[in-house]
Amino acid sequence: MNYTYYPGCSLEASADSYDKSLKSVFSDLGLGLSEIVDWNCCGATAYMSVKETVSLAISARNLALAEKAGLDIVAPCSACYTVLAKTHKIMAEKSQLFDHVNSALSQVGLSYNLGCRVRHPLDVLVNDVGIEAIAQKAKVSLKGLKIAQYYGCQIVRPYATFDDAENPVTMDKLFEALGAESVYYPNKVRCCGGMLMFTFADVALKLTDELLRCAQENGADVILTTCPMCQANLDMHMDELQQSYGHSYTIPTLFFTELLGVAMGSSISQMGIDKHLVPLAANVAKLLETKI
């Protein structure tokens, strides 16, 4: 199976390991990814706050470029995933905006005719490949690993396409099939604060503090995430959390593809897990290095 790939800006910098691990896992499973040539930023939440039609038009340029290939688009960043899906949906439902956006795209010889389906890699892995098929290819058992499965907001909201909006389970099932245990994590779709970490840091720190505390107190070894923003917020602000709340956390937050890659036989460093600020505990690292 082949897909069009839209990495998004974060995967070129702070979430570099998400990009590498995703490509590695897809290649191990025989899935093809061809990156959209010369893609641009989706606009994220920030552009939408300033100009609506413009933000839809720049986002739609990517859809227009991808449409030619006729394949589903894989967008790993939750914000990109939601923005691209939202652009498609708004254009499908509002003919005026459809016309406006296409009129803007026609300036450079492009048009978007609603021919793309935006997918999250978790959706592709679980529904196109299948949990059993993935488990059969696993080379490392995750038995003994306790995971807080953190989905975050934008892959299940506002469009819950492949999983439940309140209690998603796809990631739980995938890693349970690989031997891991999912700890009770009622915060699985709670917001990490996103860009508030820059604008109202006190508000965002409180949210990340709750997410980390819940995971750590419930005995998780790692938090798994599907989003670059969540990973950054949960990984990078330990000093500030110590100063603000006096709480110190030792729980690392990994991209789900990193752990999946390790289960498929790649090493911890190949998957970029050593690039996070919070390191894996020694016993967890050892567990992940033991092949079946």
Binding site: D38, N40, K51, E52, T53, V54, L56, A57, I58, R61, H100, V101, S103, A104, L105, Q107, V108, L110
Partner: peptide, 17 residues
């Protein structure tokens, strides 16, 4: 590479505000 394209798209889309 297509920065000029982005600017053209933005300029046109802006007229629909």
């Amino acid at each position: 590479r297509a920065l000029e394209d982005i600017r053209k798209i933005i300029a046109k889309a802006d007229t629909f505000a």
